[in-house]
Nucleic acid binder design. Structure first.
Length: 817
RNA sequence: GCGACCGUGGCGGAACUGGUAGACGCGCAGGAUUUAGGAUCCUGUGGGGAAACCCGUGAGGGUUCGACUCCCUCCGGUCGCACCA
């Protein structure tokens, strides 16, 4: 065989290389880690997928690959990396799809999971398949139910009748977060209704303050923390009491107690319990009619065009605690029962909404703040920078001062208390659906609601053919008497199981606790394992889960911590939100028909090229538009590396000083970029290094130069997180028999990386006029002297005196004339 | 409406705490090789100009020796929240 023929047959064949290493990794268990004996545990977590029928799309692959690169990088740095995966397979998503294709989710989900597994394995992820979990596995949801019981026993799971969002299409209750502009998030255009149902709630509001405070202590993407902060929505103010002549006093919450002298009327939410009490007889019909109409709307939001202020006067008055005046009481749906006390004092001069309402119904508008900024003084305005007017003894006082003064003045008569209010609501976990873990509660006429004894867990979801939800608002499980009829665990009399299942977000609020402990079937998470591996070292996922999933997971960890089950409050030490891959400017979705699947790209180019290409597309933390125009560039790059590796010379020759310098500069750059998840620029760094190597040495035009292996080994290692199969093959060809992932990440030596000569820019009056090649470390005087020597510089100085000069070490000198 | 982020060549994108704008890649042009095509390799590639130079980071202003970067106003886009008192 001639050398030319050999060259032709020994080109890079991604499919062959990837098959070889996939098999080898599996056989050698390269991707597993000894959970018990690991010396430097590093828990690298990625958000587990919901196994849809469509399979993984490139957005998923983008997310997983970015996390995988991080895990592989940490492993090369000497950590014992645990990178598990699982499937979040309960929930409305799966159930609705199952109904649509008329196949039981219990049959459908395993099929989907099988496909997901194949796709994930094909993507070259360092996943540890020995610790896979599926939320639909009774061995898993047994512990989901256990967690419910722990919260129930601690009084953190309560049953209350509450207005809930009801989607007539899903035929179930929705969390507030699932209502978008008054419509169901899954059914755009379908109005969400309000229903009053008995529901199970986790009292996450008890944790509002801690959930907020702890945000300062964790290393998370700032955007995610901000969203959580807004979601928790802390505000400071006071609760003021408006007494009524007829009956109970009405407490209101306000952030502006300083404006109480301008409170000219009071508004109650339609659902407010005191409405009946304050309504005058002659207004009874009006008020009830209004309340009935309001109840038909959903709780969360109303469309913009429906935001016209409506309301009705109840026919009675309350006493303004500051002025002593009688102010009319109204009922209006612009006041929400869920926030504050469900009642407000209206200050139409300084609140836009109150002003609109007062104008419409002809109520008094009294200015009590004069803004410092004259331009603001047109009513209504709301400003903290102003002084009180029309406020008796408090006239002239600044708003901020008046807040505390007025609050304590009223407090002396028990008419005010300072109060911190949160926007966060309790978490409704009841779902009147089939495809979820049954809530482990048994009702008994004598004993009430009792938790299922722990030894009876799991409460297995029965395999029903008839699981379709109906109009009744009752779970499909409630149609199956043989399932829900059970004796009371306390007295033994006939009891009845809870027939609602729990929210999918509960399944995913603790899955990361399960991964290290999958081998234990007698406990949810083993104490020693948990201590060793948690909190999670790095969590990477989409910002679409910035509020719900991440908030719930934090809450569950915090609650389990307080109950003595966990040694930490915050489950994720570090969280980074990756960007979103969109297609033609829109999120990929089946309905838009813009879903791109990875399979064909992986088949054509190989997983490694595809991985690298996705990471090269743009900043990992920002995402971008998917297009495939540039993928060939990555392939060309790998071909070049392949050529260099094939042509590698024997070890032991002297390495060029310049090559060594570029190598160490590259190592420093790539290491830095990987730390910060800047994968696109890390790849650029590697490309520049390879371009340099190809131009050095003894190469003629068509052949790669024969290089010292010590210049290529670090390259193979740095490439390994991005293109793992490819890097393994290179590593082997460079004479190694073990996996490249047992190698050590190359250290960068600053003394070797230092430049011998640098380019120094000379500016005259701020414009670049010359570039000098000089050794680094010159003094300012020296540099200025050299700059003045330069011909072009002289021309622009034009014999004028240098008035000032600025020198930035080894970068630039700026002369001002 | 409120909050956050973003706007740089034909395209994706670089530019660390204010210090050489356009790294790296795609595309394109010219050349080499090839019977041809493809592949590969070399060179060039923000705009204007023969050149010296001039102009350029959404628009306008400001701070500075120096601004993609900081400040103000506006325009455009993405995301989150949205009658939260």
């Amino acid at each position: 065989m001639t050398s030319e023929q050999q060259t032709q047959t020994d080109t890079y064949d991604p499919q062959a290389v990837e098959r070889k290493w996939r098999e080898r990794w599996e056989k050698r268990r390269t991707n597993t880690v000894d959970l018990r004996d690991a010396a430097r545990p590093y828990y690298n977590l990625m958000m587990f997928p919901y196994p849809s029928a469509e399979g993984l799309h490139v957005g998923n692959v983008f997310a997983f690959v970015g996390s995988d690169i991080h895990g592989r990088f940490r492993r090369l740095q000497g950590w014992d990396v645990f990178e598990p995966i699982g499937f979040d397979a309960f929930g409305i998503h799966s159930e609705n799809y199952a109904l649509k294709v008329n196949l039981h989710p219990g049959k459908l989900i395993p099929q989907n999971i099988t496909r997901f597994r194949e796709q994930l394995k094909r993507s070259g992820l360092m996943l540890n398949w020995e610790h896979e979990v599926s939320t639909t596995d009774p061995a898993y949801y047994r512990w989901t139910q256990w967690i419910f019981l722990q919260l129930f026993n601690a009084g953190l799971a309560v049953r209350k009748k509450a207005p809930v969002n009801w989607c007539p299409e899903c035929k179930t209750v929705l969390a507030n977060e699932q209502v978008i502009d008054g419509n169901c998030e899954r059914h755009p255009g379908v109005r969400v209704e309000q229903r009053f149902l008995e529901q199970w709630f986790f009292t996450i509001t008890k944790y509002a303050a801690r959930l907020l405070e702890n945000l300062e202590t964790i290393d998370w993407s700032e955007s995610t923390r901000l969203m959580q902060r807004n979601w928790i929505g802390r505000s400071e103010g006071a609760e003021l009491v408006f007494e009524t002549p007829a009956g109970s006093p009405i407490p209101v919450y306000t952030t502006r107690p300083d404006t109480v002298f301008g409170a000219t009327y009071l508004v109650l939410a339609p659902e407010h319990p005191l409405v009946d009490e304050v309504t005058a007889h002659e207004k009874w019909d009006d008020v009830n009619k209004y309340r009935r109409r309001a109840a038909e709307k959903d709780v969360v939001s109303r469309r913009k065009e429906e935001r016209d202020k409506t309301g009705v006067f109840v026919g009675s008055y309350a006493r303004n605690p500051a002025t002593g005046e009688s102010v009319p009481i109204w009922v209006a749906d612009y006041v929400l029962m869920e926030y504050g006390t469900g009642a407000i004092m209206a200050v139409p001069a300084h609140d836009e909404r109150d002003h609109e309402f007062a104008t419409k119904f002809g109520l008094e508008i009294r200015q009590v703040v004069e803004a410092d900024d004259e331009a603001l003084n047109e009513l209504p305005f709301s400003s903290w920078d102003g002084r009180l007017v029309n406020s008796s003894d408090f006239n002239g006082m600044s708003c901020r001062q008046a807040v505390s003064q007025i609050t304590s003045w009223l407090a002396e008569r028990d008419l005010a208390t300072s109060k911190v209010q949160y926007r966060l609501h309790d978490w409704c976990i009841s779902r009147q659906r089939y495809w979820g873990p049954p809530i482990p509660i048994i009702y008994c006429d004598d004993c009430g609601a009792l938790g299922v004894p722990e030894e009876d867990l799991p409460v297995v979801l029965p395999a029903l053919d008839d699981f379709r939800p109906d109009e009744s608002g009752i779970s499909p499980l409630a149609r199956h008497e043989s399932w829900y009829r059970v004796p009371c665990p306390s007295c033994g009399k006939p009891g009845r199981r809870e027939t609602d299942v729990s929210d999918t977000f509960l399944d995913s609020a603790w899955y990361f606790l399960r991964y290290p402990s999958t081998e234990f079937d007698d406990r949810p998470f083993d104490a020693a394992m948990t201590k060793k591996w948690l909190p999670v070292s790095s969590y990477i996922g989409g910002n679409e889960h910035a509020v719900l999933h991440l908030m719930y997971a934090r809450f569950i960890s915090m609650a389990l911590h307080d109950l003595g089950h966990l040694g930490f409050e915050e489950p994720f030490r570090r969280f980074r939100a990756h960007g979103t891959i969109v297609k033609d400017g829109a999120k990929m979705s089946k309905s838009r028909g813009n879903v791109v699947v990875p399979d064909e790209y992986q088949a054509k180019w190989g997983a490694d090229t595809f991985r690298m290409y996705l990471m090269f597309l743009g900043p990992y933390l920002e995402g971008g538009d998917f297009r495939d125009q540039g993928i060939v560039g990555i392939r060309r790059f790998l071909d070049k590396v392949w050529g260099l590796v094939r042509a590698a010379g024997p070890a032991g020759s002297v390495v060029d000083r310049a090559a060594l310098r570029i190598l160490h500069q590259t190592i420093a750059r790539v290491t830095n970029d990987l730390e910060e998840l800047r994968y696109n620029t890390a790849i650029s760094g590697l490309t520049e290094y390879v371009n340099f190597l190809r131009g050095s040495g003894d190469a003629d035009e068509h052949a790669s130069p024969s290089l010292e292996p010590s210049l290529l080994e670090p390259l193979a290692i740095m490439l390994a997180p991005f293109a793992p199969h490819f890097a393994e093959e290179c590593w082997e060809r460079l004479g190694h028999t073990d996996t490249v992932f047992e190698a050590t990440w190359p250290p960068s030596d600053p003394s070797l990386a230092r430049d011998e000569e640098i380019e120094l820019v000379v500016q005259v009056n701020g414009k670049v006029r010359a570039r000098l090649r000089v050794p680094p470390g010159l003094t300012k005087d020296d540099v200025v002297a050299r700059a003045l020597d330069d011909e072009t510089v002289q021309r622009f100085l034009d014999d004028k005196d240098v008035k000032r000069s600025v020198y930035v070490q080894d970068r630039l000198v700026s002369l001002v004339v």
